[in-house]
C-alpha cells in the first residue's frame, strides 16, 4: 500500500502524471478513486479486494483525454489494457501502468510486451464460485439451460451496467442505441434482453478479458459474465489464442473452419 502511495506521489512530484486511477476504501468494498494531486495519493489502496476493472476509464475521453494517466491494474485490467492497445485505443506515451508482482510489490510495466509477458507467466486469479456455477450450467441439458437463462434474463431491466462496467464496451454508439433500423427493442422483455446479451457477447468474442465485471456490476445478480466466459472458452477452443492483434470476429482467413454452417 505504502509503496504504491509513494510511487504515485513521486510521479506527481516529477510531473510525470496528471491523473492516477486507483482504488480507495469504499462503503463495503474498494471503489475506483481518481487522484489529481500528490497529497491525495495517501488514500490509495491496492490489494486482492481491488477487483473492479479500472481499464474501463482509460477510454473515457472526458476523464483521461489529454492527461498523462497512471493506473493500478489488476490481473484482468492488465489483460484489458493489452487488448485496448491491440485495438489502438490507448497511447503508450500517455500511460503509466502498475500492477502487483508475485511477491506483492508494485510492478511498473513499460510496454505492452511487458504486460503480455507478465500475463503469460501469471496464472489467472482463482474463481471458485464461478467455476462451480459454470460446472452446473455445463451439466444441464439444452432445455434446462434455456430455462436457466430465460429465467435469469427475464429479470433484466436494461440498465446496461454490464456494458458500462466493461472496458471493451467503448463504442461511442452502442448497437442498442441505433434506431434506424432498431436492431434491438429498447425496452425490457425476456426476448429483447436475450437479444441484447447475445449481441454484447458476440461483440466481445476474442476481446473479453474474462474479468467478470459485467456480472459483478449487474444490480440484479444475473451472471451475465458467464456468457462472455463461455464465449471466451469457445473462441479459444475453435480458434486458439491469438498471437497477433487480430480478433476472431474482425479477421477472416481462407482456412477458417466452416463446420458451424449447416
Amino acid at each position: 500500500m505504502r509503496e504504491l502511495q509513494d510511487t504515485v506521489k513521486a510521479l506527481f512530484d516529477k510531473g510525470e502524471i496528471d491523473l492516477f486511477i486507483g482504488y480507495e476504501k469504499g462503503t463495503r468494498t474498494p471503489r475506483p478513486f481518481f487522484v489529481h494531486k500528490a497529497e491525495d495519493a495517501e488514500n490509495l489502496i491496492f490489494d486482492a479486494a481491488c477487483s473492479g476493472n479500472l481499464a474501463v476509464y482509460l477510454t473515457r475521453k472526458d476523464l483521461t483525454g489529454g492527461k498523462k494517466t497512471g493506473i493500478s491494474a489488476s490481473y484482468y485490467a492488465l489483460k484489458s489494457i493489452a487488448q485496448l492497445f491491440d485495438e489502438n485505443q490507448l497511447k503508450a506515451e500517455n500511460l503509466r501502468i502498475f500492477g502487483v508482482s508475485e511477491e506483492g510489490s508494485v510492478q511498473f510495466f513499460d510496454s505492452v510486451a511487458a504486460i503480455k509477458q507478465h500475463l503469460s507467466a501469471t496464472p489467472p486469479p482463482a474463481k471458485p464460485d464461478e467455476d462451480e456455477l459454470v460446472g452446473k450450467i455445463n451439466a444441464m441439458t439444452a432445455s434446462e439451460r434455456w430455462k436457466f437463462w430465460s429465467d435469469e434474463l427475464s429479470k433484466c431491466f436494461k440498465c446496461y451496467a454490464c456494458r458500462a462496467a466493461c472496458p471493451m464496451c467503448y463504442c461511442t454508439k452502442c448497437i442498442v442505441e441505433v434506431n434506424r433500423p432498431q436492431w434491438i427493442q429498447p425496452w425490457a422483455s425476456t426476448l429483447s434482453n436475450m437479444e441484447w446479451q447475445i449481441n454484447r457477447v458476440m461483440h466481445l468474442a476474442g476481446r473479453c478479458s474474462d474479468c467478470g465485471s459485467c456480472g459483478t456490476a449487474c444490480p440484479l445478480g444475473i451472471p451475465v459474465h458467464l456468457l462472455t466466459h463461455k464465449m471466451s472458452e469457445t473462441v479459444k477452443e475453435h480458434f486458439g489464442v491469438s498471437e497477433t492483434k487480430e480478433n476472431v470476429l474482425s479477421t477472416f482467413k481462407p482456412d477458417d473452419k466452416e463446420n458451424f454452417i449447416h
Partner: peptide, 9 residues
C-alpha cells in the same frame, strides 16, 4: 461523478 459509469442501475 468521476467514477460514475453512466449506467441506469
Amino acid at each position: 461523478s468521476e467514477r460514475c459509469l453512466g449506467c441506469g442501475a
